[in-house]
Amino acid sequence: MSVLESGPVSDALVITWRNLKRIPRIPELAIFAILQSIMFVLLFAFVFGGAIPLPDGGNYKEFLMPGIFVQTIAFASATTAIGMADDMGKGLIDRFRSLPMARSAVLTGRTVADVIYQAGILVVLMLAGLAVGWRVNNGVEKFLLAVLLLLGFAYVMAWIGVWIGLAVPNTETAQQLTFVTIFPLTFISNVFVPPESLPALLQPIAEWNPVSTLTASCRELFGNPNPNIGDGFPSQYPIAVTIGWSILLIAIFAPLAVRKYRNTSR
């Protein structure tokens, strides 16, 4: 029998299919995710942006957009966490666990579907970015590499979301917990302001923050203004550090999530 008829791959695809089917049925979720990001674009591009001078006089809107992409993807963990907590609460996870399916499929199917979903949101945001004056200046190859890094990070955030979703008692907690952890992560970074304007105490955090390294990687690859935080290692090799972070975080959170899933209500 083909691997697509039964077994772990087939099961994961079925779960992916299920999660993708849901998206158009709850359009509010995608619409609010996009609106929130667009609100940030408008707020910073047209309200605060004028008051934030870039050190070498670059275009603030070009500086901002890669940060917005990363912020949106970082918040994707909330979508995953809420979805997972919802499945737990509604008894669907129990149903899955009573079926002779591969247990890994519930988590891999969910995370893969969430990355596809984030890719869709990224397309909309990039179009919005082009509309406000963001440009890609370094050619297709580097652009695709940046997209790959963004989607890789989306996959990491999805696994963190799975773990949070399984660890919390309900969807409300899932939402709040991801919110309070992701928000500081995106603000103590180079997303909205040039990092040199941050207090000295926060600069090392901002420099090593994966949100910063990914944002710096994208700015570099898109050819957007990219003021360095310092001359530390993450600032010089943002792409390498971003890949390192992604591997490290997956290596931590995927096993945690899998263990949490196995021990659910045991």
């Binding site: 299920r18 849901r22 149903r95 002779p100």
Partner: peptide, 23 residues
């Protein structure tokens, strides 16, 4: 009732059947 509210009745049963490893 442990079914996915955002799927149709058909889709729910199809999902469960496939996860039951039916072709």
């Amino acid at each position: 009732a442990a079914v996915d509210e955002n799927l149709t009745g058909w889709e729910n049963l199809y999902m469960f059947g496939r996860l039951y490893e039916l072709p």
